[in-house]
């Protein structure tokens, strides 16, 4: 009962927090100047027409001439009833625009998260148990490289090397052309096809590199913290193998703080990484959709696009808290 009540309260809080975030977004959009209306007014002025009339038409067609409270109630009511309005920048309903875009984001985002979690934890744990070896130094190098290198620069360099240079490079008589990859994302290929998988390699590599570094550093630190603890020594004394000690004893307790990092890293990727990755690789995903919507002040689409990461982050934190209970039996929300 206690756990259910806790979850119910957290879900209710998620709804309230989402409402607050959407309301703040709405206020910010209202306060910001509207470049589209200004452009329409300028165009009319240049044609000797009444710029005010053109500005008014532009705003009217987007429902922005209505009183603010009417707009606000309309948007909130629409969100509650799953009618998220019409996107003027995309010329389609908001839900359809988001529905079309998320597929493209998911194609690189999900593999990047999995790769960074698996890769980061694996390298981190291995480094921790093999300190001051070549493998440890190599792992640390990967970590610091990933953290230090800016995503946008790394992406551009990879495109230049793998996309351009490999096309006609020959090393020791060996042509690199078969290893070259497309320089930008094409929407022509089916989602589950080799060509699509190949063109996603560079975005996934760029996105996961930074994240791998974070996961690796934290998992190494956590593993080192527990490697010499009493319960690990006890396990070893009882004859547990190195592998069993690592997975069953060290990794399990380390997962509590690491899961916190995982959610934070995933959200960082979603919020920041996707804008950069999608712009550079020309992927028509949620990041570019949101950026276009903000640039064009497409209020319904901005709100819709804001809603998703806000909701994901709140629910993600909830699942993370619930995961603690499974990972560490000492944690209990029953009395909260």
């Amino acid at each position: 009962m206690g756990m259910k009540w806790y979850v119910a309260r957290r879900v209710a809080w998620a709804v309230v927090a989402t409402w607050i975030a959407v309301s703040i977004t709405f206020v910010l959009l209202v306060a910001a100047p509207n470049p589209g209306a200004e452009a329409a007014a300028q165009q009319c002025a240049a044609q000797g027409q009444d710029p005010e009339q053109c500005r008014e038409n532009y705003l009217r067609e987007r429902g922005l001439l209505r009183p603010l409270h009417v707009q606000y109630i309309d948007y909130m009511g629409g969100i509650a009833t799953l009618d998220w309005g019409y996107s003027f920048s995309q010329e389609k309903p908001v839900l359809e625009a988001i529905g079309d875009a998320w597929v493209y984001s998911a194609q690189y985002f999900i593999p990047a998260i999995l790769l960074s979690a698996l890769g980061g934890y694996s390298i981190g744990l291995y480094s921790a148990l093999n300190r001051y070896t070549v493998a440890d130094y190599f792992g640390s190098f990967i970590a610091y490289f990933g953290i230090s290198i800016p995503n946008f620069w790394f992406a551009i360099m990879l495109i230049l090397i793998v996309g351009v240079w490999f096309r006609d490079a020959v090393i020791f008589g060996f042509a690199l052309e078969p290893f070259s990859l497309r320089t930008f994302y094409s929407t022509d290929f089916p989602v589950f096809s080799v060509k699509n998988a190949k063109q996603l390699i560079l975005p996934i590599v760029v996105l996961s590199t930074a994240s791998v570094a974070g996961q690796m550093r934290y998992s190494r630190t956590q593993a080192l913290e527990y490697a010499n603890s009493d319960f690990v020594k006890t396990a070893r004394a009882k004859g547990a193998t190195g592998w069993r000690v690592l997975i069953r004893h060290i990794f399990r307790v380390a997962l509590v703080p690491l899961s916190t990092i995982l959610i934070a890293e995933a959200l960082a990727l979603l919020f920041a990484g996707s804008f950069i990755i999608e712009a550079i690789f020309q992927i028509p995903g949620l990041g570019r959709l949101t950026l276009d919507a903000i640039n064009q002040k497409d209020t319904p689409l901005v709100i819709g696009a804001t809603l998703i990461p806000v909701f994901i982050s709140i629910m993600g934190n909830l699942f993370q808290d619930l995961a603690y209970v499974l990972l560490d039996p000492r944690i209990d929300y029953g009395d909260r």
Binding site: I156, G163, V164, F184, Q282
Partner: peptide
């Protein structure tokens, strides 16, 4: 007509033949 948000990607694309 292929749009590029980042012009340097467009330059790479033309040099690669994409």
């Amino acid at each position: 007509y292929q749009v590029f948000d980042e012009q340097s990607t467009g330059y790479s694309a033309v040099r690669a033949g994409d």
